[in-house]
Computed example of a mutant assay.
Amino acid sequence: MNIHARALKYFDTIRRCGSIREAARRLHVASSAVNRQLLQLEEEIGAPLFERMPGGLKLTAAGEAFSRHVISVLQDEQRLLAELDALKGIRRGEIKVISVEGLNANLLPAVLERMLTRYPTIKITVRSAGSAQTAQAVIDGDADVAIGFSLERSEALRQCAVGRFALGAIVPPAHPLAQSPQVSFAECARYPLILAGPELSIHHAMKPLIRNHKRPITVLLESASIELAKTLAIRGVGVAFQTRIGIEREVADGLLVHLPLKAPGRLLTELGVYVRAGRTLPPALDAFIRFVEDELEQRAAQEAAA
């Protein structure tokens, strides 16, 4: 079903590609047809929507405003189709999820198992990125839902659910710090450190601790890979830092110990679920968000009890 003006879909594809030729290739139409639709749009609006730059097309101020309208219209079309299918007794739809890497180990598989067991005909695509990139993907309409740590507040985003988890040091059970119920950064800094890269929210959460520590520290590695930091911590190479989210199996198997950081109280970080502000959620997306919310509540309660 194609219930919206062709020009809107053409405009959105040009926006994503930054090129009329590439947009035409993806739409399987002639470049002249795409260009003609764009020119008609610009004539109706009374302003250019793109700047023609040497490296491609860039949205003008009018183009930015128009793009927000187009994203809303096209996402509302997805919602309408899902509702029409629901009226017919058909369960279908597609959900585009973007999340931080650490969720791939345990939390996201648990959510996807529940979602796909309940709604086996829903198509879900998942990709990973840093927290800032997850937010931008939702704002740009490239993803339906973002799950990330400590996202900056934005009028373009709506937070649908949140869990708060303690940021801590992770070490193997044989490490000298492993028997402590919680540790300070100063205690961790006596040992070689593995720090998160600036792409990760952990990097920014720990900045004040590092800045206020007046003694020299030994940083063995700075990386945007949670998996790499976790593996090196298991090997006893250095002290790494993260929440319990993403190391559930290693903690359960006795490979790692998670030690909450004192700063001066517990240092908490938010894991939130976000959609574009003002968007009406299709039934499948709403169901997915409810599953994530349930999982966050369970894990936050488990951590509080521990």
Rank of each mutant, 00 (worst) to 15 (best):
N2V: 09
N2R: 15
N2P: 02
R6C: 10
D12K: 02
I14L: 07
C17R: 15
I20E: 00
R21L: 11
R21P: 09
E22R: 06
A23P: 04
R25F: 04
R26D: 07
H28V: 06
V29E: 03
V34A: 00
N35W: 03
Q37C: 11
L39E: 14
L41S: 07
E42Y: 06
E43W: 07
P48V: 11
E51K: 11
G55A: 14
G56K: 03
L59Q: 06
A61W: 14
E64S: 07
A65G: 08
A65C: 05
H69K: 05
Q78I: 15
L80Y: 02
A82W: 00
L84Y: 03
D85N: 10
L87S: 12
K88C: 03
G89N: 07
I90G: 03
R91W: 01
K96D: 13
K96L: 15
V97P: 04
I98P: 13
S99K: 11
E101M: 07
A105M: 06
A105R: 06
N106R: 14
P109S: 11
P109W: 08
L112H: 11
E113M: 14
R118G: 08
R118S: 12
Y119T: 07
I122P: 03
I124P: 11
T125V: 01
G130I: 09
S131C: 04
D140Q: 09
G148F: 12
A156R: 11
R158E: 08
R164Q: 10
V171A: 11
P172K: 08
H175C: 09
H175Y: 04
P176H: 13
L177G: 02
S180F: 10
P181Q: 12
P181R: 12
G197H: 08
G197T: 08
G197W: 05
L200W: 02
L200F: 04
R211S: 07
R211V: 09
H213R: 06
H213Q: 10
K214N: 14
K214F: 14
I217F: 13
I217D: 08
L220I: 05
L221K: 09
E222L: 12
S223L: 09
A224H: 02
S225Y: 10
A229I: 01
G236I: 03
V237D: 09
G238H: 05
F241N: 07
F241G: 04
R244I: 07
R244C: 05
I247R: 00
E250W: 13
V251G: 01
D253E: 15
G254R: 14
P260N: 11
K262M: 03
V273Q: 01
V275W: 01
R276K: 06
G278Q: 02
L281M: 10
A284W: 04
D286T: 13
A287T: 06
I289G: 04
F291K: 04
E293Q: 15
Q298L: 11
R299L: 11
R299P: 13
A305E: 06
A305C: 05
